[in-house]
């Protein structure tokens, strides 16, 4: 059963790597969060932990419904062109993503030295984390940076559920709250940037140097 969610997570992450426009990126983020929800739910069923059920529920409410809706709403409100502005083109991005996948597998096998089966979920988590960082660096709009950050966080949540069976419960809740607040604040700043500069192209934010 877990294989389905792992497969889904990988597909959604690769979809994000090849996305050229912001709405596609938001949509794939929603798919990724959905499969993260699924993976967490399966771990919860296996380990029979009540707190993980609640975490899964929160992932569904915040990351599958809430945050993508908020991002779409912000996009509509600021009404800028939707191209992401790729620094690396699709082919190079895909090659890099494959490299990330291999790297995270090797790293995860090193870390979880006692069994290979245990290493799969952490490997996917590290892969998602690296992809998130890639999106933050190699895509030019402020919107893509927010999504990259959220993707990194998805990777972390997967890692926490996979290797720990979740963090202590109140810590997890606090982190969720924090993620939500930070997205709202960043959305607010994107709105301000667009108002002041009439674009959200972070590459052209270069008044402060040296």
């Amino acid at each position: 059963m877990q294989e389905v969610s792992i497969f889904g997570l990988l597909v959604a992450t690769f979809l994000m790597v090849i996305a050229k426009r912001t709405p596609a990126l938001v949509r794939s983020f929603r798919y990724q969060s959905f499969f993260l929800f699924l993976a967490t739910l399966i771990i919860a069923l296996e380990e029979k932990q009540t707190s993980l059920y609640i975490v899964a529920g929160l992932i569904f409410i915040l990351k599958v419904i809430g945050i993508p809706y908020f991002l779409q709403y912000t996009m509509k409100k600021i009404n800028v062109r939707e191209n992401l502005g790729l620094i690396a083109n699709i082919q190079v991005s895909l090659l890099l993503a494959l490299g990330f996948a291999y790297m995270s597998w090797v790293f995860s096998k090193q870390l979880m030295s006692f069994s290979e089966a245990m290493a799969i979920l952490p490997a996917v988590a590290f892969f998602i984390l690296l992809t998130g960082m890639f999106l933050m660096i190699f895509r030019l709009t402020a919107m893509a940076q927010i999504i990259g950050l959220l993707v990194m966080e998805n990777g972390l949540f997967l890692l926490a559920s996979a290797v720990l069976g979740g963090m202590p419960f109140f810590v997890e809740i606090a982190i969720f709250f924090d993620v939500f607040v930070s997205v709202v604040i960043m959305g607010f700043f994107v709105y301000r940037i667009n108002k002041l500069f009439t674009h959200i192209d972070v590459n052209r934010l270069s008044r402060l140097r040296g």
Binding site: M136, Q145, L156, I185, M186, L196
Partner: peptide, 20 residues
Amino acid sequence: TKKSVEAAWKYIIICSAGII
């Protein structure tokens, strides 16, 4: 101002990514 919003954006993005 343009400069201060730019600084705030860099601050929030770099620090949030770092702290992940």
